[in-house]
C-alpha cells in the first residue's frame, strides 16, 4: 500500500518489475524461497532450523522458485532474518512470522547502510553507521537513533520446511533522499 508513495523515492525494485527488466533486481514476490546471501552456504535455501533462536541476524536474498534466479541484482533486495521469542511478537508481526522468525529489509531507512549489527541485550537490529535501532518483534519500528521509519517487512511462510515469502515487501525499502522529494519541491 505504501508503494504508491515511494514511486518517486527509492522504489527501484518496483520500477524494475513494472518494466519487466532484470529479474535479479526485481523485488521479492510470494513463494520466493530465501537463500543465504553470504558465507560458505551462499545461495543455499534457508530452512526453519537454520535461523537459531536468539542468534544475530543472518543475511538472505529471495530466489525465484521457478527459475532458481537469486534476486541479488540490487542490494535493496537484501533481507535480514532473526528468530526471536514468538510470545513477544506484536499481533501484526506474528501474522508475518514463521514461529518467531521474521524477515525485514536489510537496508537502513536513514541513509541506506546495511543492518549488520545486533544488540544481544535488547534483541534489536542496529545500524553500524549512525546507530539506529529497530525492534524486530514489533514490525522493526525505530526504537533509537536517527532513522525516520521502520524497516520494510517481508511476510514469511514455510514451503516444504524451507522459508519462503508469503507476499511482497510491506513498507518502503531504503531511504528517502532529502531535497529530492517532488511533493516538497526542490528541497524539504
Amino acid at each position: 500500500m505504501l508503494r504508491g508513495l515511494c514511486a518517486f523515492g527509492l522504489a527501484l525494485p518496483v520500477a524494475s518489475r513494472a518494466q519487466g527488466t532484470d529479474g535479479a533486481a526485481t523485488p521479492p514476490a510470494e513463494n520466493d524461497r530465501l537463500v543465504f546471501a553470504f558465507g560458505e552456504r551462499a545461495g543455499a535455501a534457508i530452512a526453519r532450523d537454520d535461523v537459531t533462536l536468539g542468534a544475530e541476524q543472518l543475511f538472505a536474498y529471495p530466489m525465484d522458485p521457478l527459475t532458481g534466479e537469486i534476486r541479488n541484482g540490487t542490494r535493496l533486495n537484501q533481507l535480514v532474518l532473526v528468530h526471536v521469542d514468538r510470545a513477544g511478537l506484536t499481533e501484526q508481526t506474528r501474522a508475518r512470522a514463521v514461529d518467531g522468525i521474521v524477515a525485514y529489509s536489510g537496508v537502513c531507512t536513514h541513509t541506506g547502510c546495511d543492518i549488520t549489527d545486533w544488540d544481544t541485550s535488547t534483541n534489536r537490529f542496529q545500524c553500524p553507521c549512525h546507530e539506529s535501532q529497530f525492534d524486530p518483534s514489533d514490525g522493526a519500528r525505530v526504537v533509537g537513533g536517527p532513522a525516520p521509519w521502520q524497516l520494510a517487512a517481508l511476510p514469511l511462510k514455510l514451503v516444504d520446511g524451507m522459508l519462503a515469502a508469503a507476499g511482497e515487501f510491506e513498507g518502503r525499502v531504503g531511504f528517502q533522499q532529502p531535497g529530492l522529494d517532488p511533493l516538497g519541491g526542490l528541497g524539504t
Binding site: 537496508v107 541513509t111 541506506g112 547502510c113 546495511d114 553507521c129
Partner: peptide, 14 residues
C-alpha cells in the same frame, strides 16, 4: 546543481 544518488547507495557519512 542537484544530484540524485543511486537508489542502492550506502551513505555512511552524508
Amino acid at each position: 546543481y542537484r544530484r540524485q544518488m543511486p537508489f542502492d547507495i550506502r551513505l555512511g557519512h552524508p
